[in-house]
Computed example of a mutant assay.
Amino acid sequence: MIPNIGKLIREQELLSQSSNSVGISFDQYNSLEDIEAYLNEVADSNNNATLRSIGKTVEGRDIWQLKFSVGSGKPAAWFDCNIHAREWLCFTWSNDRMWRKNRNKYDGELCYGIDLNRNFDDHFGGEGTSGESCAETYRGPSAASEPETQATQAAIIDLAENANLEVLYSLHSYSELWMYAFGWTDELPDEANELHRVTAIGVDALAAVHGIEYTYGPISTTNYPASSNTVDFGYYHGVTHSYTLELRDKGLHGFLLPENQIIPTAEETWAGLIAATLAV
């Protein structure tokens, strides 16, 4: 339970409304339009970077993939961010700060929204998902029913088959956790020892920056059961080193992390990701 959540939401809304900066700022939360403009600038100014839309959301917004070439034969890494809206994009800026799902609604359903991280085509409908449309973890009517999920799955499969994809990171907030497969069961994958080894390296490197110590282990037992998620999908399509990170904090602010923690969070997370990737 986050204390004074209404007060925190109002304070964050005022900060986003009062910002008059031009372009993107790394020490404040930025609108989707500003983020998209920044991604275009990165692609335009870097010969090794390309930006392309891999699909559209239910609302008709582009789903962007920013790709950096790393050289022939070198392993590729996938970073999956903001799969839950309150982590923090779109609809949540203007309507409901704590909205989690996409904005789809099927005929006959009472409520809007499918939890995209319960919609992947892997053990669909399993533990940790709901068949009720009003639930936060509503999985949708069928596996990969959502355009956002379809685009992400296709991109992961393409990279796994054609670009030597060896590492997948799904970045979320909050709880300070670093986790690996599985979410659908408490059984361990065959490579559990290797996944644990790499995770420990990432967690130690992260903690060395600002002293934040992450808890780590399999999704289902470290956090809670969560079937049909990005990490399990990646694992079952050949990306053994698939990880979920739940960033700062442990619940004092939760999804409403103060802006003065953005840069420290980025610094420690990047150090952990680089260390883990190099350890693969």
Rank of each mutant, 00 (worst) to 15 (best):
L206A: 11
H84S: 06
S175N: 07
K56G: 00
V231N: 05
N47E: 13
D34L: 15
S45A: 14
P264W: 12
F26N: 10
I35T: 15
K101F: 00
D121A: 15
I219C: 05
G251K: 10
G113D: 03
G183E: 08
E36K: 14
E41R: 14
R100E: 08
H210V: 02
T215I: 10
W64D: 05
P225S: 07
N82L: 14
V231L: 06
V22W: 08
L165T: 00
D80A: 12
E268G: 08
N30D: 15
L247K: 11
A163S: 14
I63N: 02
L256D: 11
L247P: 10
W93F: 05
M1C: 09
D186M: 04
M179P: 09
I263Q: 14
G131M: 01
V209I: 15
T137C: 00
T215M: 12
S242F: 02
I35C: 11
T221A: 03
A144P: 03
S45N: 15
M179L: 14
V198Q: 09
L206E: 04
L14G: 04
S21L: 11
A43W: 06
F79K: 06
G234V: 01
E41W: 08
Q153I: 10
S21N: 10
L252S: 14
T230C: 07
E213K: 15
L206Q: 09
V198F: 07
F182T: 04
S18D: 13
P189N: 05
H84Q: 12
F233G: 08
Q150V: 14
I201W: 07
L110G: 00
G126S: 07
L66P: 04
